[in-house]
């Protein structure tokens, strides 16, 4: 096994999951300007629900996945109803969502911990795939690793295509000028709800994908919140391509830090890179083009 190629494998696989988390941040941020502090919880809920449906209940993988996506989307919608829209209704420029989304995150973590306990749970890979690794160019790669990378890339392509639809255009309009969007008949509250549903489902999918690799447990919320945000910020908030590059970057940095030093240094390494990128390019690498007002 070659250390460099193994770092590359780990970086790409976990970076793909982080790219999905970064995208889920972007989806909510666009129509609301909210950075959701409960985003990591959707990942954790996705992983825990996968453990319950696929392992405990023994449901087929696709049925379990469908239930996970529904559950995470519903969780996100509850957050939108109780922790975000009431705040934004009072003032679009309020930053009270920092506290309300954090509060929602803590409540969800406590409920999940109470319901299913702190013990890690296994989650199966989809039928036909395996975590048995094969040596490819010095890296141990499984068919499931390839599956994770491909699924994440496909989801990102899908989101790019969604941006080109009237819905994507309406989301951009709400992001740029909520008031004018409303005056043109676009309902920002409805778009916000849809964004939360989609964001919750994508973060939940990230949880399903990562669970076989790290086991489902409540600490996933924290493990994916800050690296996911770092990936979104490095890539440029609002950019799907940026989320992918940001995800890979953070994934590689985490893998390299773990290989070179220790797992405990992963967070520090992530934030060194985040600070470095944002010092050089505060808007992130692929931030949507800002237009100078004339």
């Amino acid at each position: 096994m070659d250390l460099t190629t193994q770092v590359l494998r780990d970086g790409l696989v976990f970076g793909s999951v982080l790219a999905l988390v970064a995208c889920s941040f972007n989806i909510i941020h666009r129509p609301t300007n909210v950075l959701n502090f409960a985003q990591g919880d959707f990942v954790m809920v996705g992983a825990m629900l996968a453990a319950v449906t696929m392992t405990v209940m023994g449901l087929p993988w696709l049925v379990g996945l469908a239930l996970v996506l529904l559950g995470c989307a519903a969780t996100a919608l509850v957050e939108e109803r109780v922790a975000v829209t009431p705040v934004l209704r009072r003032s679009m420029t309020s930053v009270s969502w920092v506290i309300t989304t954090l509060a929602f995150s803590i409540i969800v973590e406590n409920i999940i911990a109470k319901a299913w306990g702190p013990n890690p749970r296994t989650v199966p890979v989809p039928p036909g795939l395996s975590q048995d690794a094969t040596d490819i160019g010095g890296a141990l790669v499984s068919s499931y690793d390839v599956f994770v990378v491909v699924v994440a890339a496909l989801i990102l392509v899908g989101l790019e295509l969604l941006d080109r639809t009237p819905l994507g255009s309406a989301l951009s309009a709400v992001a740029e000028d909520r008031e004018i969007a409303m005056l043109r008949g676009i309902n920002p509250v409805r778009l916000t709800q849809r964004s939360f549903l989609l964001s919750g489902a994508i973060a939940g999918l990230a949880g399903v994908l990562v669970a076989p690799l790290v086991l489902a447990n409540t600490s996933l919320a924290v493990q994916f919140l800050l690296p996911g945000f770092a990936a979104a910020a490095i890539g440029g908030l609002g950019s799907n391509r940026g989320a992918l590059i940001g995800g890979y970057t953070i994934g590689l940095v985490q893998a390299a830090a773990a290989a070179q030093f220790a797992v405990a240094y992963q967070s520090a390494a992530v934030f060194v890179v985040l600070l470095g990128v944002l010092l050089l390019r505060p808007q992130g690498i692929f931030a949507p083009k800002a237009v100078r007002h004339v």
């Binding site: 009237p166 255009s169 951009s172 000028d177 004018i180 005056l183 676009i186 083009k289």
Partner: peptide
């Protein structure tokens, strides 16, 4: 339809996209 003062349009989007936004839904 209300045309707000200050020629407010969606500056980051194309002219075509701006017109299409008026036709949303």
């Amino acid at each position: 339809q209300y045309v707000v003062e200050g020629h407010r349009v969606f500056r980051a989007q194309t002219v075509r996209a701006n017109l299409d936004i008026g036709l949303y839904k």
